[in-house]
Amino acid sequence: MDDLEKIAKKLEDGSLGLEDAITEFEKGIKLAKFCHQKLEEAERKIEILQKGGDGDVRKRDVKVKPDTGEIDDDEDLQGSLL
């Protein structure tokens, strides 16, 4: 994002030659694309760790009520990893 801001400033400065301006602009587009993609990488999931009978810790997907943040799961969840 910082790089992107630098590119915008460089182009606004107007001191770049046409050739460099194109190169910078191309770089900016690529960076912006990369940043936008990066923001969409996460996959929206809530997981809770639970200890199995063998002592191994596993993750388990749970639903959440988005307005209250409350975990909404049918099964009894362990309150700790003890």
């Binding site: 996460a42 996959e43 999931k45 809530i46 997981e47 760790l49 988005p66 969840l77 990893l81």
Partner: peptide, 18 residues
């Protein structure tokens, strides 16, 4: 969870219960 999801809807959360 509420604040995190409001700010970043596709955030991933792992809860270690304690």
């Amino acid at each position: 969870i509420k604040v995190a999801m409001r700010r970043y809807p596709n955030i991933e959360i792992v809860l270690a219960p304690a």
